[in-house]
Simulated scan of single mutants.
Amino acid sequence: MNLSDMELIMTVSRTKSMRKAAKLVHLSQSAISKKIQLIEDEYGITLFHRTAAGVELTADGQLFIQYAGSALHTLRTGIEQTRMKNAERKVTRLGVASPLISELHRFSGYFQSHGGPLEIVTSSSPEIVRKLQEGTLDFGLFGYESIPGDISAIPLYRQDFHLYASDRYLPAFLPFADRTVSYVRASFIQALRELPLILPKQGIHVRQMIDRIMEKEFGGEPCIAVETDTLELMEQLAEREFGCTFITQSVYESSTGRSPADFSGETFRIEALGRGMFRIPLPFLFPSRQVFFAQSPHRPDGLDGIAVRTFGWTEPSPGPGSPEAE
């Protein structure tokens, strides 16, 4: 016998009618009659006398109702108290950089097992770091070149930058293919200065990093064709030959720990992607970004208790990346 069986018997007892009880519990009269008969047969008792007017409790039925009513009251009180306790439990606030929202499924098991309500806050990476430092967020998932020293964080994977463009712009870069980066670097930057670029809007974290690199390397204003806050649109515009853009590819391994200058002796590569598109890895120009899972320094517990490494981050690198920025 389960809880619903007990409630069914209580309903029949209260209404003194199989027909009326059937309407209340949304079952057929025959289904209720059969269920009660099965209970009576299983426990060897008779709960109801069937009469022309309906049903009446037997002596056994009256005794059963007395204890069943007490048991149901205790169960309902326990459920209500549990709900009240959960409502009082502290809300855990998790900040997530907007492009990383699809990664949340990796954390669901941890937060579900630890109970308590979870509030998701989407924002930019710098804003998440600031709120972690203030203590207005408990945890954060974001991308950054390096982690601020006062935040406890675990690097999950890195994002490498690429130039992404249609084959229309390929002739501008073909002379550099398979040559040493140090030999063609200045010519590549000059070629890039003369081509239309599709960039994130001002104020977006990745745009701030791109602007710093361009100011340092270009020595002047680049040719900006389009600015947009939609990453999918950046890629679509590049595929429609509005210009070149920058995308990132997620690499599920430890950071190389290398600066752009460390790649000067490597080969300049152009990678054909099909569909009339190509990309150029830019480790010699842009530093890799790390994606971190971090905890506010204001929380008493430590990240050691969170098995981030069991969340499934160590997986093969995906195919050609799509823009991931915020």
Rank of each mutant, 00 (worst) to 15 (best):
N2K: 14
I9P: 01
M10I: 12
M10G: 04
T11Q: 12
V12C: 06
S13K: 09
K16H: 08
M18P: 01
I36H: 03
E42A: 12
L47Y: 03
R50Y: 09
G54E: 00
L57T: 08
A59H: 09
F64Y: 12
F64R: 02
I65G: 01
L75V: 15
G78S: 08
Q81H: 12
T82C: 08
M84Q: 15
N86K: 14
E88P: 00
G95A: 06
G95V: 02
A97Y: 02
A97H: 02
E103C: 06
H114G: 05
G115D: 06
G116L: 03
T122M: 14
S124G: 10
L141P: 01
I151A: 04
L156A: 03
Q159C: 13
Y164I: 05
A165W: 01
L170F: 06
D178K: 14
D178N: 15
R185W: 10
A186G: 08
Q190Y: 08
Q190D: 14
Q190P: 00
L192H: 02
R193V: 01
E194P: 00
L195T: 07
M209T: 08
M214P: 00
A225K: 09
L233E: 15
M234I: 10
Q236R: 14
T248V: 06
Y252W: 12
G257Q: 04
P260N: 11
S264H: 12
G276E: 07
R279M: 03
F284Q: 04
S288W: 00
S288Y: 02
F292I: 09
T310N: 14
F311K: 03
W313M: 07
S317A: 15
S317D: 15
S317W: 09
P320G: 15
P323I: 02
E326M: 09
